[in-house]
């Protein structure tokens, strides 16, 4: 594969990470805790879409190689993920009388419950959406880019969702309230903003985007009950890289982390070509920069960012 090919793959994977990291960052800044159940919210979206798509079928025509029924399933997946998150907030998080660390620990319990329910219902095996996988787009193959129409659909949908969020945050009343609350919850409250309601909307938006990310992750790879939890740390890496609490930072961080994990094979080629010689350093680098360690590299970047620039690349929260 060429550089362009890796970049194209990175773009597709980044779109999924961005969808996940925006929600995590929003909840982190407005509900004020690290939500470990976010990855499993993605899984909920994916499996809801699987069930819906199985029930409604293709519904006639298709866009970008995806039947209409799939888009309906996507919407249902987003809706169910949002409803589950709001229900959890109302039933579990809101009545809790603990600090943000307590909420963090609780969210781990919630993550396990989500995953366990899915695993009991669907088993722990991998599944796929009942959509025929496509051949890569012919005209792009000469450039070494092997992306399918489905990948294009993922990127396009992610762009639409992210643009929608941008409009919402910048130009609507709710967006202004959310930004005010992320900035200073107490001040927002005394200014007459109904913070509880804003928090609920945050959950709707965050979990909805996560649900969409989960559906696309299922389309990009496969579905399994662990898919969300496995992606959670990558998403955390993206959020931290972008700066916690900053939605635009989360987008940038998600984009970078997605690219880095997908470009790892390319980096390993680069390392092999570098004139480091046959020293121990070359061997070490060749062994460590491999596909197996793609996630590990992202986690190490996350720790380094936490150490040297805890506010992330975007600096102070620019929500």
């Amino acid at each position: 594969m060429t550089v362009l090919g890796y970049l194209a793959n990175g773009l597709v994977f980044s779109s999924i990470i961005v969808l996940g990291s925006i929600g995590l960052s929003l909840v982190y800044s407005i509900a004020d805790f690290a939500n470990f159940a976010h990855g499993d919210t993605m899984t909920i979206g994916a499996y809801t879409a699987l069930v819906t798509f199985g029930a409604v079928g293709g519904l006639g025509g298709a866009v970008l190689g995806l039947p209409y029924g799939f888009f309906l399933a996507l919407v249902v997946g987003i809706a169910v993920a949002a409803v589950v998150a709001v229900g959890t907030e109302k039933l579990i998080y809101e009545p809790l009388d603990v600090d943000s660390i307590g909420l963090l620990i609780t969210s781990i319990g919630i993550a396990f419950i989500y995953r366990a329910v899915i695993q009991i219902r669907f088993g722990s095996d991998f599944t796929r959406f009942g959509i025929q996988s496509l051949r890569p787009i012919e005209t792009l193959i000469p450039y070494g880019v092997r992306v399918t129409l489905h990948d294009v659909a993922i990127v396009a949908s992610a762009v639409v969702l992210v643009a929608g969020l941008h409009v919402l945050l910048q130009y609507t009343d709710l967006g202004r309230k959310m930004r005010a609350m992320a900035d200073n919850p107490d001040l927002a409250r005394v200014s007459g903003i109904r913070t509880k309601r804003v928090k609920l909307w945050t959950w709707v938006i965050g979990a909805g985007l996560a649900g969409a990310g989960g559906v696309f992750l299922g389309l990009f790879n496969q579905l399994s009950p662990r898919m969300g939890f496995n992606l959670l740390l990558i998403i955390f890496a993206a959020v931290i890289l972008g700066g916690i609490g900053s939605v635009y930072g989360a987008m940038a961080g998600g984009f970078l982390i997605g690219m880095i994990t997908q470009l790892t094979p390319f980096f390993s080629n680069v390392v092999e070509a570098l004139p480091i010689g046959q020293g121990w350093l070359a061997t070490l680098l060749e062994n460590l920069i491999t596909l197996e360690y793609a996630n590990a590299i992202a986690f190490v970047i996350m720790v380094v960012v936490l150490l040297v620039r805890p506010n992330g690349i975007a600096g102070e929260g620019a929500t």
Partner: peptide
């Protein structure tokens, strides 16, 4: 396996 996960989750919450 999922039963264990469920119980652990319920105990935490």
């Amino acid at each position: 396996a999922p039963m264990r996960l469920l119980l652990i989750g319920i105990v935490i919450v």
